[in-house]
């Protein structure tokens, strides 16, 4: 039962897949190979070709407290923004799924944030949360500098967490809503007949049945918060104050393109890549086992 279509003409087959292969090679494998090359070599201070230095770059970053700070900051950021974006998206999707008034309009509106580029999100949040002029500055009237992301590390962290979750929430929302709507209505109705209120219905029936979606979004959100948060950090906090928001991906950029130390940046990006691969592996290996695919 071999139902795959086969090509007799290998040249034609090759020509058909070539564009795709070319894209993947040019934009993925080639940069990765370049990064690997940079990571294991270093540029002589006064020009010339790179010299092979083995693990030296890695040894250097792992013995650097600033690097470990960025790892810690990244993990905090990933946990907070994943929790916030998944939690909020789930809440909104559950509310929309109950078809409260205006649910059709909300469905569209909630997806829009995902269509906005990260730097634009960052810019918007920078204004909203500006300590002197933004909406949130109102709370500074209670006490001076109650809110100041330019001075306080945790304020800055909160700012990028909120901005990133706001964007990811839109994406998560669509998946949750689709999954909720694929749960047979009669199950939710049966639970209502069995005496469950809205909260218990969500806890007993809907959320357990959403487990596969939840798992998928967990993987996506954690990965995204590690690798795709550069734009927001760059525009809102620039990694500060005092490196409180110096995420790994932002540090790669600032070391590489501001500090012009390509080798260190490349080594860090290899570490980040391995970290993301490892996390994804762990999630599939251990978390997925606890998911019921109904």
């Amino acid at each position: 039962m071999d139902r795959r279509a086969t090509f007799d003409n290998l040249w034609l087959a090759g020509a058909l897949v070539a564009p795709q292969i070319l894209l993947v090679v040019v934009f993925f494998y080639w940069p990765t190979m370049q990064a690997l090359y940079w990571a294991f070599s270093t540029q002589p201070p006064f020009g010339g070709t790179n010299q092979w230095v083995g693990w030296q770059n890695f040894e250097q970053i792992f013995s650097d407290a600033v690097y470990w700070n960025s790892v810690r900051v990244s993990i905090v950021f990933a946990i907070l923004s994943t929790a916030l974006s998944i939690g909020m998206a789930l809440l909104l999707a559950l509310m929309i799924d109950r078809q409260l008034a205006g649910h059709k309009a909300y469905r569209f509106v909630y997806f829009w944030p995902y269509a906005i580029a990260a730097p634009a999100v960052g810019l918007a949040f920078r204004f909203i949360f500006a300590p002197d002029a933004g909406f949130v500055s109102a709370i500074n009237q209670l006490a001076p500098n109650l809110w100041n992301p330019a001075l306080k590390g945790w304020d800055a962290m909160l700012l990028i967490v909120i901005a990133n979750s706001w964007k990811m929430m839109a994406y998560n929302f669509i998946f949750f809503l689709a999954a909720l709507q694929s749960i047979p209505r009669s199950l939710v109705e049966a639970a209502a007949m069995d005496g469950s209120g809205v909260l218990r219905r969500a806890r007993d029936i809907q959320i357990p049945l959403l487990a596969p979606t939840l798992f998928f979004l967990l993987v996506i959100n954690i990965t995204e918060s590690f690798v795709d948060s550069f734009g927001i950090v760059d525009i809102t906090t620039g990694g500060g104050p005092a490196r409180a928001t110096d995420l790994m991906v932002f540090k790669i950029y600032s070391d590489g393109f501001k500090g012009l130390d390509y080798s260190m940046a490349a080594a860090q990006s290899i570490v980040l890549m391995l970290l993301v691969i490892g996390l994804t592996f762990v999630q599939f290996r251990y978390v997925e086992k606890r998911v019921h695919y109904a």
């Binding site: 047979p184 009669s186 049966a190 007949m193 209120g197 007993d204 357990p208 019921h292």
Partner: peptide, 17 residues
């Protein structure tokens, strides 16, 4: 829930998990 009646659905609506 407040009406205290039970219903058996056509597709049984058992909770699959």
């Amino acid at each position: 829930r407040a009406r205290n009646i039970a219903m058996v659905f056509q597709n049984y609506a058992l909770y699959p998990h």
